[in-house]
Design a protein around this nucleic acid. Sequence first.
RNA 1: GGAGAGGUGGCUGAGUGGUCGAAAGCGGCGGUCUUGAAAACCGUUGACGGGCAACCGUCCGGGGGUUCGAAUCCCUCCCUCUCCGCCA
Length: 425
Amino acid sequence: MLDPQLLRSDAQACAERLRIRGIELDIDRFATLDGERKRLQVATQELQSERNKQSKLIGQKKAAGEDVSAILDAVSELGARLKQHEGELDALQAEINTFLLEIPNLPHATVPEGQTESDNEELRRWGEPPQFDFEPKDHVDLGAGLEMMSFDTAAKIAGARFSFLQGPMARLHRALIQFMLDMHTQEHGYQEVYVPYIVNSDSLFATGQLPKFAADLFELRGEEGYWLIPTAEVPVTNIVRDEILAADTLPLRFVAHTPCFRSEAGSYGKDTRGMIRQHQFEKVELVQIVHPENSYDALEALTGHAERILQALELPYRVVALCGGDLGFSAAKTYDLEVWLPGQSRYREISSCSNFEAFQARRMRARFRDSATGKPALAHTLNGSGLAVGRTLVAILENYQEADGRVRIPAALKKYMGGADTLSK
RNA sequence: GGAGAGGUGGCUGAGUGGUCGAAAGCGGCGGUCUUGAAAACCGUUGACGGGCAACCGUCCGGGGGUUCGAAUCCCUCCCUCUCCGCCA
């Protein structure tokens, strides 16, 4: 949520920043709603104040044994008017709240302009795409050849956009999770957490998936307001919802491995082959809760932590800064890591690292006690994939393939694979 | 799932339908004392919103109700604890 104060004091500036996203803010609508709110709120509070005074007086007179019937009549008439005002004010505030909840975050000043993915700005590349003296296969053919991956089996069990792995490839998939968690906890200072995979609506409002993006989520049937998590960002960031943290506890760094569930509504026909885009996939997620002054340094560090995984696995990748039009709803700035996939001869997203500034914190009242003022202040929240596990498996299969269809195991993973150095039939 | 007991400020914990946003203790902050620290003593210390301000309003798990007035009474939902049942 944007700062309502900022919206009141400088709506023009907000609108200008949102234009980078290609979004037009309805300034007049807000001004009208807020003007009316102000009028109603002042009037309502005056009535409340009057009622409080009279009620107090009644108490005092009764205690003194005086007659109160005259005041009683006057005040009960006041009560009816008050109820009317309060009802109107509540309705108006609900309307304003809905309006505010649907405005995306303001992009940071360094966010490139542009509408689509193609306008993203490449910042750097790491590693060289491998040269093959044969025609490289994609992960689907490699998996089928090894008899360790079957989308037919997954489709029979569940449906489209699910995957089925078996044997050493299932183990490799698990090994990746262990490897990522170990690196982030042992080398990057994150605390591992285990969290619910089902969350309530409040949590989804807090991180920004609701109210606008309910269609992207799986909601449980028969249980009101229970949803499968689309990312660990939701349960992990909500750890600090409604908390006032001591300043010296910041920064908080959490890492969690969870499955992620996405309806992928609206992505029909996109990435239908293989395990690039699934209803269910595993992800190791990094989350940081930091002092506002440090959040952009933290974004660089967090992105670096995700990059370290790709480097350790010796997978070529590039880093791009998302343009305004490609930026997620809650993010002020996002770096995507894109890994090289020989099966597609292109870089594909494998991690997305964002600074949300106070956008999520304001929605969830995540605060810390500012040592300078002694007052609670909003923290900044960040998160990033470290990494998407399924896509990392895809990248390993495709980058480490041999002419005969075998796949070498990256050196960093061997100890997680019982010393094996290839996947082979 | 059944029965019972509870949810109050950063924490523990009092609370009568009428100056209760809330006693007390702990913790925090400031001070006195001390070479310094501890102890002791004194003072101070909730959040959110509106207003230039004086100040006003809201908040005692969430929502609704009764009342001139609700932390206190009623309804409902959520959560925690104890016992029983079931179970990984």
